[in-house]
Amino acid sequence: MEDNTLIKKCQQGDKEAFQVLISRYHPYVYKFLVKTTQNDQIAEDLTQETFLKVIRNIEKFDPAGQAKFSTYIISIAKNTGLDYFRKEKRTMQNVPISETFDIEDVNTRVADTVINKLDSQNILADLEGLPEEQRIAIKLKYIEGLSLKEIGEALHVEPKTIKSRIHNGIVKLRKKWGKGDDDERY
């Protein structure tokens, strides 16, 4: 069954449709939250909380709108995670991502060049030192593989803003690594 059909049924209170939707998206949300939190149990708890929010607010999602449901649900998961870190008086910047940076998933020229030239642990430490909005944009682009449009929808900003955040983050990393802002593109 197509997502939009499921969502419409969920909006009409169909519990079986909710079960199918949850089963379909649970692994996607859980994986995202594991990468974000670095803790399986916390990720599972936040996944549960994410789906409770989805169930409570399903009527707000427009299946005929431009946003994909996957973008909508990841946006809720991201906000749930941020709320958790605020409650714990931690920020996304303090969460180690060394386990989440899967080098094989990175498929851009800049990332490939950096990986070939530098030790990956230094990259991870430097990435953690970026401002939160740049680090999140880079993680969603290069680790999650989302497009600029999808990231913009998830973070509620224009794709050109996401592109700028990624560019500025990479420029900061290059300066830290002694690289100029040459013609290579990410």
Rank of each mutant, 00 (worst) to 15 (best):
A111L: 14
F101M: 15
R165N: 10
V157W: 05
L118R: 15
Q66E: 15
A64N: 15
I97K: 10
G65E: 06
T47W: 02
E150H: 07
K60P: 00
A67V: 00
N122Q: 12
R56V: 02
F101N: 09
L130D: 03
G65K: 05
S70I: 04
N168M: 02
I166F: 06
D105K: 14
E99N: 10
R56P: 02
K89W: 07
T91K: 10
D83S: 12
K87F: 07
Y84C: 05
H156S: 13
F101H: 08
E158Y: 04
Y142Q: 12
K60S: 12
T50V: 07
E132S: 08
I138S: 05
I162R: 02
G65I: 05
F85T: 11
I166N: 06
K68M: 13
Y142F: 08
T113K: 15
S120M: 12
L155G: 00
K160N: 10
D119N: 10
T71Q: 13
V114A: 14
L124F: 08
S70T: 11
Q134V: 03
E88R: 09
V157G: 03
G65F: 01
T50D: 09
L140V: 02
N168E: 00
G145T: 03
S120F: 10
E158I: 01
D105T: 09
L118V: 12
L118I: 13
D62Y: 06
Y72N: 04
N94I: 07
K68D: 07
T47S: 11
E59F: 01
I76W: 05
L155Q: 02
E133I: 05
V106Q: 09
S164V: 06
H167L: 06
P159M: 10
T108H: 05
I123V: 12
L52M: 11
R165A: 04
T100Q: 14
L140A: 05
Y84D: 08
K141C: 08
I76E: 05
E144F: 00
K78I: 07
V54P: 00
N116Y: 06
F69W: 05
D105A: 11
K141D: 05
G152E: 07
T100H: 08
Q66A: 12
H167S: 04
D62P: 01
T50F: 07
Y72L: 03
K117M: 09
T161F: 03
Y84M: 07
L127K: 06
K53H: 11
F69G: 00
A111Q: 09
E133N: 07
E150F: 04
D126C: 07
L146D: 10
